[in-house]
Amino acid sequence: MSAVPAVGALAVDTVRDQLGEYCGERAGRWSLRPVGAGKKWTTDPANVQPTTVEMQTWVFAHLRAHPDHLSYAEVIERPWVMKPEGLT
C-alpha cells in the first residue's frame, strides 16, 4: 500500500491474512487492530493492501446483523459464516 490510509480505514495485512483498522504509524511500522475491538499489532506497510468497497460493505453489514460478533476476527473464526468471494 503506497499511501498512508486515514485512521480507521480498513486494510488487509497480507502476512497475517487479517483485516484490520489502521491506527497510525510509528518508527516506519503501521499499527492495525481487529475491526470493532481487539489487540493492536504492527506490520510493515509493504505488507498492507487496501480493501475493496464490497469487502467493507460486507464486513460492516455482517457486524450490524450479528451484534454478538464483537469483531471481524471473531467473524472469521466462525465456520458457519458465509463470506463473499475474495474475503479470506
Rank of each mutant, 00 (worst) to 15 (best):
15 V>D: 15
48 V>H: 05
4 V>D: 06
72 Y>N: 11
56 Q>P: 05
40 K>I: 06
83 K>P: 03
79 P>M: 03
47 N>F: 00
42 T>W: 10
3 A>G: 08
63 L>T: 07
80 W>Q: 13
60 F>G: 05
65 A>R: 14
22 Y>R: 03
49 Q>R: 12
7 V>Q: 11
25 E>T: 15
30 W>Q: 12
49 Q>Y: 02
60 F>T: 12
40 K>P: 14
60 F>N: 15
4 V>K: 12
50 P>V: 07
53 V>T: 13
21 E>S: 07
78 R>K: 11
32 L>A: 00
71 S>K: 03
39 K>V: 14
54 E>H: 13
58 W>I: 08
7 V>D: 07
76 I>P: 07
50 P>R: 10
15 V>C: 01
86 G>S: 08
39 K>W: 03
5 P>Q: 09
50 P>E: 05
53 V>E: 14
25 E>Q: 14
20 G>L: 05
85 E>P: 10
65 A>C: 05
24 G>I: 01
27 A>W: 09
4 V>M: 15
81 V>W: 09
40 K>Q: 13
19 L>M: 09
46 A>K: 12
72 Y>V: 07
38 G>H: 00
29 R>S: 08
9 A>S: 14
15 V>L: 08
32 L>T: 00
42 T>Q: 05
60 F>E: 15
29 R>I: 01
11 A>E: 04
69 H>I: 13
5 P>N: 06
42 T>E: 11
85 E>V: 03
24 G>W: 00
70 L>G: 09
65 A>F: 06
62 H>N: 10
40 K>C: 09
44 D>C: 03
70 L>A: 13
11 A>P: 05
81 V>Y: 09
7 V>W: 06
26 R>H: 07
32 L>F: 01
40 K>G: 01
34 P>R: 00
87 L>N: 01
74 E>G: 02
60 F>W: 15
68 D>W: 04
49 Q>D: 12
1 M>F: 06
51 T>E: 04
29 R>V: 10
62 H>I: 03
26 R>T: 11
44 D>Q: 11
60 F>I: 05
15 V>W: 01
25 E>M: 10
40 K>W: 00
59 V>M: 06
48 V>N: 04
88 T>R: 12
37 A>I: 01
8 G>I: 04
10 L>Q: 11
47 N>M: 09
13 D>C: 07
23 C>K: 13
51 T>D: 02
82 M>T: 13
83 K>N: 09
29 R>N: 07
35 V>F: 05
65 A>Q: 14
5 P>E: 02
56 Q>F: 07
1 M>K: 06
40 K>H: 09
47 N>Q: 13
62 H>G: 10
